[in-house]
């Protein structure tokens, strides 16, 4: 039956996976809050992060230096994001804003197909996993895979860094201001297209980081970003589009619901429980838990 130990184990497991989901959702919602566009290719940046992690561990650094591969993978995705923003997104934002959303949707969907096809063409449909020699770790009463615990710790560090930059740096102040008024920051003399570039880079780097962290758990293959992206959008709907606190809280909520549903109802329907929550939110609070009021980068 429902032992306290099982409840605690399920809770810990849910929080840990929820924080990792939140990274992806944070990337989606961060880009939206700054640029007012949805990047439909987020899953492909996740996928690139996971491939980078695999290649660095398998061919360059080795399993002992897996931890070094993680920031390098995220930085690689960040750099790629800067190039994508410069080449594909920035030209859209130089035009009048009427059809900006439509163009951004078409461009990022095309990018999704391109990157996925490239990955299939270059690496084939095979599944890879970066080696990890981390031992089983006891989290409270619960034995957990070292890779999963390490991913959780890295995610927490990344979230703390993200928060610190947003809250205490000049650039963070500019990002927070841009999320509230694009005209306002231009009147302050801030290069709004430059802010877009950095925001896009940070947003996709968060997805790439999630990909690198989850590579040992969810494996590496051309469409591995799909499920995580779907979960990212679920979180965005639950937390409220554009709300960063909402993304964090909804990420943990989704992790908990999936975890408890799998443990106490049926693990076969793990991905359904989140959708049920999304439907409930859409029915009773369509703007999400933190909706428009919570929009703040």
């Amino acid at each position: 039956m429902f032992s306290t130990e099982l409840v605690v184990q399920t809770f810990i497991s849910g929080v840990m996976i929820g924080v990792l989901y939140a990274l992806m959702a944070l990337g989606i919602t961060f880009i939206y809050s700054i640029m007012r566009m949805i990047n439909w290719a987020m899953g492909e940046f996740y996928m690139i992060g996971s491939y980078l992690q695999y290649m660095l561990v398998a061919f360059l650094l080795g399993p002992d230096l897996w931890w070094l591969a993680i920031p390098i993978s995220a930085a690689g995705v960040f750099a790629f994001g800067l190039v994508v923003q410069w080449g594909l997104i920035k030209p859209i934002f130089k035009k009048p804003p009427e059809a900006r959303d439509d163009y951004a949707t078409v461009v990022t969907l095309a990018l999704l197909l391109l990157l996925r096809s490239l990955a299939t063409g270059l690496a084939g449909p095979n599944q890879f996993t970066p080696g990890s020699n981390l031992p089983i770790v006891m989290v409270g009463p619960m034995p957990m895979a070292g890779a999963r615990v390490a991913a959780f710790v890295f995610a927490l560090v990344a979230l703390a860094l993200f928060y610190g930059v947003l809250r205490y740096s000049w650039y963070g102040l500019a990002l927070r201001a841009t999320s509230q008024s694009r005209v306002g920051v231009q009147t302050a003399g801030i290069d709004v297209l430059g802010i877009d570039r950095v925001a896009f880079g940070i947003g996709v780097a968060l997805a790439g980081l999630a990909g690198a962290l989850l590579a040992p758990v969810f494996l590496v293959f051309p469409t591995n970003g799909l499920i995580t992206t779907v979960k990212g959008f679920e979180i965005v709907v639950i937390g409220g589009l554009g709300s960063i606190p909402g993304a964090l809280i909804a990420g943990i909520l989704l992790g908990l619901i999936e975890s408890f549903g799998a443990a106490f109802i049926d693990s076969a329907y793990q991905n359904i429980y989140g959708f049920a929550l999304v439907l409930l939110i859409l029915a009773f609070k369509p703007t999400g838990l933190f909706g428009e009021r919570g929009r703040e980068a």
Binding site: R176, A177, Q180, V183, T187, R295
Partner: peptide, 12 residues
């Protein structure tokens, strides 16, 4: 430039 609309950042 001071635009017509209130030019503040409400959450700051």
């Amino acid at each position: 430039y001071v635009p017509q609309e209130l030019n503040t950042f409400p959450h700051l």
